[in-house]
Design a protein around this nucleic acid. Structure first.
Lengths: 186, 204
DNA sequence: ATTTTACTTTGTAAAGC
DNA sequence: GCTTTAAAAAGTAAAAT
């Protein structure tokens, strides 16, 4: 049996940062090619990087949200590109702004199909949410680590809400242990 | 002092009026759905609990009332799908679903997943299918569910496929369209579930 | 009848309504 | 609460072929 931990893939990393300067988004939108800015719809300007692929939300305050990257390293690479693009527009950007990872979304595979009905009862109906009429995944909120897992009948799962990649590993370990104890994992 | 007293009366009256409105809405929707009086009473009890726990704040009275009725139907073993409930409510399906999940969590209703078999009598009856077809559909549901085929699937689509399969096996054939219409699912869903179920039953 | 596109669920930050 | 962004899981649905 392969350790489900080895199957973990980071699918999305969300991080926030700031350049330390206020911005005139109207002019940035004019000068930055590919920028999407519609203040009526959303106060942030959207700028997408191609490699690594990501989307940056740039705000008037100078704060920036980066999402869509596949690793924390990609987040730093993407934001470096964004910072340089802004510098090209003669905008002052702090030397190396602090980048804080806010959420990591991971996927994994437990290796065998799951009986979600039995798992719902086993883990306790008060501890889970399972409404197949609304969504095929069983929602399982953990306290340690503080993340949310979505379990599917195929045995695959999604872990989100964590800030370190270790959070997903610990979550998968905990889930495997609890399901095994219940005899609900082959 | 008199002002405070009058304010309390006003608040109390407003609260009473809101409760009356919620209960009358539950009554109206329950009638439209054709569910027994016991379900309305269960729904009313859930609504009063939600009110006591202050779960209505930030939500519409009718949204909570509808969600309580949906939960009550399930608790009483005669479920109505969110689509069926939204058909008699002025609240949209998505909002009813969200509110239901919120109320179920907060009141710790410990709702069990809907058993597709609970839809069989009503759907089969609307299709004028025999007792034999219903028994066969139930057998298909139990057998295939035990094999893990039910995980993640919508109970209405699952029941619809089993009824369709059973109608074929018992020579009382209904078309996928006819079954899809009463269950309010698409023919594609029936086709997909039907294939899996027949496969799991070992093609009769 | 199949394929494509799109929506459902989960977390998270940002500024403003 | 909402708005927007990204991504996965799998089911369902509507539209396109």
């Amino acid at each position: 049996m392969v350790d489900p931990k080895e199957s973990i893939d980071i699918e999305n990393v969300v991080a926030s940062t700031g350049i330390g300067q206020e911005l005139d988004l109207e002019s940035v939108a004019m000068d930055l090619e590919g920028a999407d800015y519609d203040p009526e719809q959303f106060p942030g300007l959207v700028y997408r990087t191609q490699d690594p692929k990501s989307a940056a939300l740039i705000f008037r305050s100078g704060k920036i949200v980066c999402t869509g990257a596949k690793s924390t390293d990609d987040v730093h690479q993407s934001l470096r590109i964004v910072f340089d693009k802004l510098r090209d527009l003669n905008i002052q950007v702090d030397d190396d702004p602090e980048i804080v990872v806010q959420n990591i979304v991971s996927s994994a595979d437990l290796g065998s199909s799951l009986n979600l009905n039995a798992i719902a009862i086993g883990l306790g109906l008060e501890n889970i949410e399972y409404e197949p009429e609304q969504f095929p995944g069983l929602v399982y909120r953990l306290d340690e680590p503080d993340v949310v897992a979505l379990l599917f009948g195929s045995g695959k799962l999604v872990v989100t809400g964590g800030k370190r990649k270790e959070d997903a590993e610990e979550a998968v370990d905990t889930i495997v242990e609890r399901l095994s104890d219940l005899g609900l994992l082959d | 002092r008199l002002r405070k007293w009058q304010e309390r009366i006003r608040t109390k009256d407003a609260g009473e009026r809101n409760l009356q409105f919620a209960l009358s809405e539950i009554d109206r929707m329950a009638s439209a759905l054709g569910v027994p009086r016991s379900v309305r009473e269960v729904a009313s009890v859930i609504y009063r609990r939600a009110l006591n726990e202050d779960l209505i704040r930030g939500r519409s009275i009718e949204g909570v009332a509808t969600a309580c009725l949906y939960a009550a139907c399930r608790q009483e073993g005669i479920p109505r799908s969110l689509e069926e409930v939204s058909d008699v409510s002025r609240v949209e399906q998505k909002e009813i679903g969200r509110t239901y999940r919120y109320v179920a969590q907060e009141l710790e209703l410990k709702m069990e997943p809907v058993d597709p078999k609970q839809y069989v009598p009503r759907f089969a009856s609307e299709l004028e299918l025999s007792e034999e077809v219903q028994s066969k559909a139930n057998e298909i549901i139990d057998t295939t569910a035990e094999q893990g085929l039910l995980s993640g699937k919508s109970p209405t689509g699952y029941a619809a496929a089993a009824i369709y399969a059973a109608s074929l096996l018992c020579n009382e054939k209904k078309t996928q369209r006819e079954v899809a219409d009463v269950a309010q699912v698409t023919e594609v869903t029936i086709r997909n579930r039907y294939q899996e179920q027949i496969e799991a039953m070992g093609i009769h």
